[in-house]
């Protein structure tokens, strides 16, 4: 499996650290309450098919990526820098 980093180009999967679903980008406020934190930390749609999740280009440019990929076929559909998404105003 190879992921295309927007900065570094196509790279071996071993250069990346997988964190989890992009849900992790929506961090609740400190007072959001147990439901919101449970949702953020634990509950997942866990889809068999197309998902977006967070990968860290650990041994490359040290950027966080949102990767759109298929959990059934392992196909990588697209990658985007978290930083770029924020610039575009996509709610992180």
């Amino acid at each position: 499996m190879r992921l295309t980093c927007p900065l570094c180009g196509p790279r071996d999967r071993r250069e990346f650290y997988y964190y989890g679903h992009e849900d992790y980008l929506q961090r609740p406020g400190p007072d959001a309450g147990p439901e919101a934190w449970d949702d953020h930390l634990h509950l997942r749609d866990n889809i068999a098919g197309e998902v977006r999740d967070l990968w860290y280009h650990e041994t490359g440019c040290a950027q966080w990526l949102v990767v759109t990929r298929n959990t059934v076929t392992h196909e990588i559909l697209s990658t985007e820098l978290v930083a770029d998404r924020k610039k575009k105003g996509v709610r992180a």
């Binding site: 997988y18 989890g20 679903h21 866990n46 998902v51 990968w55 959990t71 059934v72 392992h74």
Partner: peptide
């Protein structure tokens, strides 16, 4: 990484 493929890399 999250996966439903019953095979690995």
């Amino acid at each position: 990484y999250a996966s439903y493929a019953a095979r690995g890399n």
